[in-house]
Design a protein around this nucleic acid. Sequence first.
DNA 1: GAAATAGTGTCTCTTAGACACTATTTC
DNA 2: GAAATAGTGTCTAAGAGACACTATTTC
Lengths: 229, 229
Amino acid sequence: MRTHTKSSIRGAQPASVSLDLVICAPAGRQLSVLLVPSAEGSREKWTLPWGWSVAGVQPDDGALKIATTALGAKPSWITQVVATGDEKRHPAGASISVGYVAVTAARERALGEGAVWFPSQHLPAMAPRHVALVAAAAEALRVRLDTAPIAFRLLPPTFTLSELQEVYELLLGRSVHKASFRRSLQAVWLVEPTDEWRSEGRGRPAQLFRYAPRKRRGNRRGVRFDLLD
Amino acid sequence: MRTHTKSSIRGAQPASVSLDLVICAPAGRQLSVLLVPSAEGSREKWTLPWGWSVAGVQPDDGALKIATTALGAKPSWITQVVATGDEKRHPAGASISVGYVAVTAARERALGEGAVWFPSQHLPAMAPRHVALVAAAAEALRVRLDTAPIAFRLLPPTFTLSELQEVYELLLGRSVHKASFRRSLQAVWLVEPTDEWRSEGRGRPAQLFRYAPRKRRGNRRGVRFDLLD
DNA sequence: GAAATAGTGTCTCTTAGACACTATTTC
DNA sequence: GAAATAGTGTCTAAGAGACACTATTTC
């Protein structure tokens, strides 16, 4: 039978597997993405944080570690997006790449060595596989926005409802009706008010809220037909 | 250093990557899953159709080929579900497995060698990684049901609206209101009637419809908060 | 006619969005 | 007071589900 290293399995062709991360944070009305300098001799100057998948370490754990190194702190949410092995070039030539998207509230962290935030709409040249992954990551955030607390993980522990709405608008790529947004939010008991208010200089101060989900289900949406194909 | 295959990339640890497929078809009120006999000496008798990822072949293409071999025909829809490398055992010990879910309408195909349909609720013992993948696949179908024509790919080219509704109920795991279902369906112009009717023996014959999407967008759903976490 | 299945009309309740308004701050 | 932002009340239209009904078949 086989020996104990996983790569010696009969019939298996060894592959180089990379873990590649799209780490996002809100920056005003834009989403920013964390990039790191490419290795010496690379075609592009910048790259998404990435690393090789290591035997004995689960890809999800490896990805979390890479994210934590690049960010200087654990991201507040992370999920797998896709595994690709297409002709699009990976910066180090990985045959297969597992892509992740991570989010964090803080842009003012002690970032890892050389890491820099770039606005997602104006990213520098990157390897094609990373360009595709950024698009897939944005789509993944959008799709899961209503079933995972992504927006809340992009904000600090307390936030105003206007800030929350801005995050939704950022990720959805469209504006949202204010009164309707707040009614929906109230109906599902996801946030609770604190006794603090924040004044941004102009206008009435906004009350701060915190994420405190209280309701479990009761939700049941009707059948929707939103087919694109 | 190592030799010239893709696994020779500096710093990369070679991994064995499997492609594993959950191929589904409707069987009455149940969903069935296609299994194949395990290789000699395996702990379990049955396994999901799978194969090694081969250098130079994109995983998605490789998965399609494996599905086609097992099924005896191309599946009508396929998508990636997840990449796992956790402690759960793969039948051949793959270090990393990329899981796919595929659907087809036909159970009466010329199936590949030894392949057998099993009801998804009563699967035989399988390797833990495959058990987990079946659950993830079912969830993926459910989540994408409203944005991809999955239900239509699980049916033959013409079908009755009751059949379509049954597929939705099967995948959603709940019953659906008949009149409301049909109204919604009509509103989005996804099907068109044929001039054929089918009599199932008892009761009024049902008109046959075909999938013929005509509407492009106009859809815009409001912000939903369906958080589970 | 009874049973079974297909298909529809009407009512109610929920909700998304429009609109307009009030409230509280800085200047 | 003007400008700016926060927050709310009301109306309308769409849609989901309940209910009850009609339609067409086999037995």
